[in-house]
């Protein structure tokens, strides 16, 4: 390794270290580690408890959950959640009859609106629950989706 290369490399390392250091110091409300434990749980109530510490969800019309009544293909079930509740910290989607009820979680910043959409797999007909966390309270909406062909089989 010649001198020029050495200098270049050490400068790059320094830059990487600084950026990384900067990220570590900055407080980040939205960032959290992938919650392996919650994703592994196979019981709905336990799954909700592992996310929030309790399973006290208050069902409200302020959370709008848009899912199909009947999904022909359980491998692709579109889910849309919309809420007017202020200060949404997170939105979680649970599927009661899936092997692991927690399907996905969305941590929002103060710049985000309470709107998310995705597509999930469902093994069989089940209740789908959208839970919205705001100011320490959990608001929810739920709806049953009928599955004609399951999306988790081999």
């Amino acid at each position: 390794m010649n001198r020029r290369n050495f200098l270049k490399k050490s400068l790059m390392t320094a830059a990487v270290v600084t950026t990384f250091g900067g990220l570590m110091i900055k407080p980040k409300r939205v960032h959290a580690a992938w919650p392996k434990k919650s994703f592994d749980i196979t019981d709905l109530a336990e799954s909700i408890k592992s996310v929030y510490g309790h399973d006290d969800l208050s069902e409200t019309k302020k959370v709008k959950l848009k899912v199909p009544d009947i999904a022909e293909n359980g491998a692709i079930v579109p889910i849309n959640v919309k809420t007017d509740i202020e200060n949404v910290e997170s939105i979680m989607i649970f599927v009661e009859n899936n092997p692991q009820p927690l399907s996905s979680g969305y941590n929002l910043s103060s710049k985000s609106k309470g709107v998310i959409g995705t597509r999930i797999k469902m093994g069989k007909t089940s209740k789908v629950i959208a839970a919205v966390k705001s100011n320490g309270k959990i608001y929810s909406a739920s709806k049953e989706v009928k599955i004609t062909i399951g999306g988790c089989g081999g």
């Binding site: 079930v77 399907s103 996905s104 597509r119």
Partner: peptide
């Protein structure tokens, strides 16, 4: 950062 999404295997 505006959103951090955590997905499990049940996402399509």
């Amino acid at each position: 950062e505006v959103i951090t999404v955590h997905w499990g295997p049940a996402v399509s």
